[in-house]
Amino acid sequence: MIRFTDVSKRYPGGYEALRGVDFHLAPGEMAFVTGHSGAGKSSLLKLIALIERASSGQVLVGGQNLARVKPRHIPFHRRRIGIIFQEHRLLFDRTVFDNVGLPLIISGHNRSEVERRVRAALDKVGLLDRARSFPVTLSGGEQQRVGIARAVINRPQLVLADEPTGNLDPDLSREIMEIFRDFNRVGVSILVASHDLDLIRKMPHRILRLDQGRLASDIGVTV
């Protein structure tokens, strides 16, 4: 699903976020990327979502070499990936329903299809009764679940999450991780960046540890 070959990312100013990273995430696999802040977790996810481009090396996603994706095709690349952010990035002037449905509206689905799939996605994250609420009225954990529903509404083959439990207490964090595992069970590849080692060590998934931009260790079970 994802293949990094000797990937480096150097930002203008000389800062090296990633140095010679090699790894492969198989289709249907779930893995965590961990490391101290500044170790390169976010940069790694940004390369996959084409928010940034690699300075050297090759990034393949679903067999597609991302270096060859032209800027105007980036939106279509992103539609095939569900992205979840630490700060949720919801639109606060729209209801939960409209937030979750936005990816479908962007890709031009009709009204009834949007209605049906938004309900299904909200049901999955347990927020169906909050469809007409505005995000500000929701707790942090609920907002994150809205973010997850939005990320999976397009039925992506790959879901990326950047510190999805960063601001949540341990119970809520576990809940969120369980939602990811549910998606993984139905075949979705999942890559979660997190520094919450206590939580992720309890789960039977692969852990990639980054240290100063290098892949320091790659341990765990491959599903």
């Binding site: 979502a49 928010i51 105007r72 939106p75 279509f76 690349h77 992103r78 539609r79 992205i83 952010f85 990035r89 919801l90 639109l91 936005l102 990816p103 962007i106 890709s107 939005r150 990320a151 397009n154």
Partner: peptide, 10 residues
């Protein structure tokens, strides 16, 4: 920004 991140075209 959010719209671009979830695949909105220009």
């Amino acid at each position: 920004v959010v719209t671009k991140l979830i695949g909105g075209t220009d």
